[in-house]
């Protein structure tokens, strides 16, 4: 077990039961997260990025979901083998999640102040008075104006951006070491999105947290991530430091995706596009999941899935592709 990483996920597979059959929604996920690092998980709908985060938090609804295999080490302890009571002490305390839609994740009949306090009372041995004090302090930190007055307000009295600040306050109340943010700005307007991204980056630095940031927006990835994992069809297809991923993407999917994004800073004559559509989890191709849409595909790609392997001389840049990955792989597995 690798003690260096704060979080390490190995060979994680989570499946869902559809009409009696189990289909993997994510398959063979390997990733790690270091202290103070922001890892972006990027991909289109259904690629498994949220399922990965929910599996790490052990929040997969069971049934229909099921973590079939894998390990999730946090500081050397495998979270997947912990009894639920111990996991509950970690969730929301050492590791917290921020969701996309604050209105559905906040309880509409409880005041926001109470909802922020709740985590503190549950996880930390504090009195109600102290918890309230701490809750107001964190509301100030996420820049909710006149926090002590708004403590008694209900979620519907907040705007979308303010609600997301409340969500962040709840997640950060116990000063977790790891934050999992699942599309936290997708429902927000662009000027508010910029405020929230800035706030997250600031708090992350202040609290020395590590963050897994899930998004489909490559612009956000470029502006906040240290490393990026690109997902497609339930698998990680490429991992790289953010600069490498944007400057020299190796997986054909990453490459095409980057060319299909319109840009606010450039005039683009003609956008590229990826033909076809993302396969659904019950109709995943047997070989490389991207093969049916890939320009470069060979016969082998249809037959067998490639492994996620480092590029020669670049251990941090790994690619799951028969053509762009380590070519020795092809010779090993005829």
């Amino acid at each position: 077990m690798n003690q260096e990483h704060l979080l390490e996920v190995r060979n994680l597979t989570t499946a869902f039961r559809i009409q009696g059959n189990l289909f993997p929604a994510v398959r063979g996920i390997d990733l790690h997260l270091d202290r103070n690092e922001t890892l972006a998980l990027v991909g289109e709908s259904g690629c498994g990025k949220s399922i990965t985060a929910l599996s790490i938090m052990r929040l997969i609804p069971q049934p229909p979901g099921e973590i079939v295999s894998g390990e999730v080490f946090m500081k050397g302890i495998d979270l997947l083998t912990l009894p639920e009571e111990r996991m509950r002490k970690i969730r929301g305390n050492k590791m917290a999640m921020i969701f996309q839609e604050p209105m559905t994740s906040l309880n509409p009949v409880l005041t926001v102040g109470f909802q922020i306090m709740e985590a503190l009372i549950y996880h930390q041995d504090v009195t109600n008075v102290k918890a309230k004090e701490l809750a107001i302090e964190i509301m100030n930190q996420v820049k909710i104006p006149s926090a002590s007055r708004r403590f008694k307000d209900y979620p519907h009295q907040f705007s979308g951006g303010q609600r997301q600040r409340v969500m962040i306050a709840m997640a950060l109340a116990c000063r977790p070491e790891i934050i999992l943010a699942d599309e936290p700005t997708t429902a927000l307007d662009v000027t508010i999105q910029a405020q929230i991204l800035y706030l997250l980056a600031e708090l992350k630095r202040e609290y020395s947290m590590a963050m897994i940031f899930i998004t489909h927006n490559l612009g956000i990835v470029a502006s906040i991530a240290d490393r990026v994992a690109v997902m497609y069809g339930g698998e990680i297809v490429e991992v790289a430091p953010v600069g490498d991923l944007f400057e020299k993407p190796r997986h054909p999917y990453t490459e095409m995706l980057l060319r299909a994004v319109p840009r606010v800073d450039l005039n683009i004559e003609k956008l590229s596009y990826i033909p076809g559509q993302v396969p659904s989890i019950d109709r995943m191709p047997p070989g490389c999941h991207y093969a049916p849409r890939c320009d470069l595909r060979m016969e082998l790609c249809d037959r067998q899935d490639a492994d996620l392997v480092p590029l020669p001389g670049e251990p941090a840049h790994r690619v799951r592709c028969w053509i762009r990955g380590d070519s020795r792989e092809i010779q090993d597995k005829p």
Partner: peptide
């Protein structure tokens, strides 16, 4: 608005 729109390029 322009300044708040994320650009898919880490150099930017």
């Amino acid at each position: 608005l322009l300044a708040a729109s994320p650009i898919p390029d880490p150099r930017a």
